[in-house]
């Protein structure tokens, strides 16, 4: 009896959040899944003036078969790979450079963090210019800068490449989020007791050995959180694409953009289906993480 009594207050305290999450996450997901198994491909069907039918998983089968959606998925994969690699690389590098108690560390840190303060819509305004596709004499944006700094061989068409255009979108994304990853790693570095490094040094370990055997293992949880946060941001990429290029621009399509396009044309079933596919992808990524956390907790 006393045990149950003890459980009442915490459950009460958490219940408002639970109800909200229940409605605004699970109930809505349930609605999306339902919609994705119907043939609601037009506004009239969505409005209910023309009936719709249950079609099971047909939408999913067709989506996954469609060349265009495969292109979007491939783009998403490429974007995610480049975005995560880039942000992790720069974030780690900057943190590592700043870790040694640099003078003016605060200034560097704030300025490196600055792009995160810029919304995708605002970033899109300027990156649209920087990623201008003109080359040679008409070059502007980054291409012009490359010419001026003797890096002319780097000139390229940026977002206009069908196969790699999405990689250009990853650049502003890396620009935005590297500072955040830096802050995470910086916190990670600072969280490692100085005695640990000192002890290793005493034992005659070389600097790289210290990194290999002392610092990196300590940083891996930080890296894992960074990966999770970046990963789920990456899968949702939308604002940035539509502000730098366009909803209908083929080379930079991604599932979230497809979803918006389907909605714009009244194809709510396919919009929901794309959403469910994204959700499944996220599940695949996230479930191992959740299991991992749960296992750690049990220890």
């Amino acid at each position: 009896m006393t045990r149950i009594k003890r459980y009442v207050p915490p459950i009460l305290l958490i219940s408002p959040s639970l109800v909200l999450v229940g409605i605004f996450v699970y109930y809505l997901i349930f609605g999306s899944v339902q919609l994705s198994t119907t043939d609601t491909h037009s506004f009239p069907q969505f409005a209910g003036t023309v009936p719709h039918e249950n079609v099971g998983i047909d939408n999913f089968v067709e989506l996954l078969r469609s060349k265009d959606f495969q292109h979007s998925l491939k783009n998403l994969l490429l974007y995610t790979a480049i975005f995560i690699t880039g942000t992790m690389f720069f974030g780690f590098l900057w943190a590592w450079l700043l870790d040694r108690r640099s003078r003016a560390e605060g200034v560097f840190r704030s300025l490196y963090l600055f792009p995160m303060a810029v919304s995708s819509v605002a970033a899109g305004v300027v990156w649209r210019w920087l990623l201008n596709a003109n080359q040679g004499k008409d070059a502007s944006g980054l291409n012009r800068l490359f010419q001026a700094t003797g890096l002319g061989f780097l000139e390229n068409g940026w977002t206009t490449s069908v196969s790699f255009g999405i990689a250009a979108i990853a650049m502003p994304a890396i620009w935005q989020m590297s500072g955040y990853v830096m802050a995470l790693f910086l916190a990670g570095f600072r969280g490692i007791p100085g005695e640990l490094r000192e002890a290793a040094r005493m034992d005659g370990a070389k600097e790289w050995q210290i990194y290999r055997h002392v610092l990196f293992p300590q940083l891996s949880p930080v890296a894992l959180s960074a990966l999770i946060i970046l990963g789920h941001m990456s899968l949702k990429v939308f604002d940035l694409i539509v502000s730098v290029t366009d909803y209908r621009f083929y080379p930079t399509k991604a599932p979230a953009v497809d979803m918006a396009n389907y909605m714009n044309t009244g194809d709510y079933a396919n919009a929901a289906a794309v959403g469910v596919i994204l959700l499944l992808v996220i599940l695949v990524l996230i479930v191992p993480y959740l299991i991992h956390t749960a296992r750690e907790d049990r220890k």
């Binding site: 206009t160 069908v162 209908r248 621009f249 083929y250 714009n264 044309t265 009244g266």
Partner: peptide, 18 residues
């Protein structure tokens, strides 16, 4: 219609960027 217009946009973008 909205959908036809959208599909035409998709098709043209795919062509002109290819």
């Amino acid at each position: 219609t909205i959908k036809q217009g959208a599909d035409a946009n998709n098709a043209v973008s795919k062509f002109t960027t290819g």
